[in-house]
Amino acid sequence: MTLDVRDLAYAYPDGTQALFGVTLSIARGERVALLGPNGAGKTTLVMHLNGILTPGHGEVRVAGLPVTKENLKEVRRRVGLIFQDPDDQLFMPTVREDVAFGPANMGLRGDDLDRAVVTALEKVGMADAIDRPPHHLSFGQRRRVAVATVLAMDPEILVLDEPSSNLDPASRRELAEILKSLDVTVLMVTHDLPYAMELCERSVILSGGVIAADGPTREILADGDLLAEHRLELPYGFAVPSPPGRG
């Protein structure tokens, strides 16, 4: 198992408890969608995966390594986290410096660093924007650069928090193509059920801070009662394609 979460409970400093005992395992190469209503605790869970938040109770392991202070550097190299708001992710004055931030912290310098930056930007089709300030880019462009900032660190596990929100249909499709072309384990938080259907073979529903369902995306999305119970809705007119071979 490349990602292991066991009995995870967490409360924010102001007393709001967001997670009430979450257990979840993801194998190498899997693409998993994390679904759930607003306030379910999805972002909170995701922030435990590379040690940004420290469990109040329970444990997280990445490739067998417990996420503790000693292992943080290694864990953060392996797990790339892309945040909900690209403005939070792009904090440096130019795209180049922003994409370089991660690999530079990992010790890359000079030509190696330049190459990592350019390669990552090329993967998301943003190489032309390399010297522009992030706040001059459109939302979809910022989202793509945000993906590049993480790709530049060459992660094994890519964790994305609502990557398709606020994207126009074309950018949404382009992002899906980028994600499909990468050879990494993916955990993707999303409210966009067709997007989950398109990209992930497995889905997990988090609701009220606990795992409510875990199974093949096709089956979960076909279960109308389950979806309704957790405030999830397929867009009007969308039908879950029936599994191959079962007519």
Binding site: R76, D88, Q89, V150
Partner: peptide
């Protein structure tokens, strides 16, 4: 947090 997750120390 975004900085930390990219190895800021």
């Amino acid at each position: 947090l975004a900085m930390l997750s990219r190895g800021y120390t």
